[in-house]
């Protein structure tokens, strides 16, 4: 007799537990305001990333096309995967030979976004950008030159 009661109470509890689960899914089925889908390419206009999001490394330029990079090479040294290459040239100012940056080359394809370049830069020349749409057909186009052509060093940066 005890076993028979056990048998039926097992069946009852099993059905009850299944119905509890169905209540949860049923709730979401009828409550469409709980939907969390973001329709990505359509919501580009309203999609805003957090300001600190590490999408890519950038070199901010002022309106007069000035950057803060002195070409010291600390970022290159700190980068764990060699994503940064710095090419420098010399320019003569007031008869003195001075090292300036020629190209700040950034390989986005190798970057792991550890943030060490931005953190260690002594003149705050680098920053993270929020752009995350980096898909390209050609791997070459992931190698970027960060300093814009014709840009010069901001006067305020001490060397």
């Amino acid at each position: 007799m005890k076993e028979i009661i056990q048998y039926f109470s097992d069946v009852f509890h099993a059905v009850k537990s299944l119905l509890t689960g169905m209540r949860v899914t049923g709730y979401y089925f009828f409550h469409h305001k709980e939907i969390v889908t973001q329709e990505y390419p359509e919501n580009r206009a309203t999609l805003k990333m957090f300001e600190r999001f590490k999408g890519e490394v950038l070199m901010p330029h002022t309106e007069s096309n000035e950057h803060k990079c002195t070409g010291c090479g600390i970022c290159e040294m700190n980068c764990p995967n060699g994503s940064i290459e710095i090419l420098t040239t010399f320019e003569t100012v007031d008869g003195k030979k001075k090292k300036i940056i020629d190209k700040h080359i950034y390989h986005l394809s190798m970057c792991t976004f550890c943030g060490l370049c931005v953190k260690t830069c002594p003149s705050d020349a680098l920053a993270f950008g929020n752009d995350f749409e980096h898909a390209v057909f050609d791997r070459q186009s992931l190698t970027k030159v960060l300093n814009k052509p014709g840009s010069t060093l901001n006067k305020e940066v001490k060397e």
Binding site: R52, F53, F113, G115, F128
Partner: peptide
């Protein structure tokens, strides 16, 4: 993401 800049791998 808001504090560290990385979602999965904050570093």
């Amino acid at each position: 993401e808001e504090s560290t800049g990385g979602r999965l791998l904050p570093s």
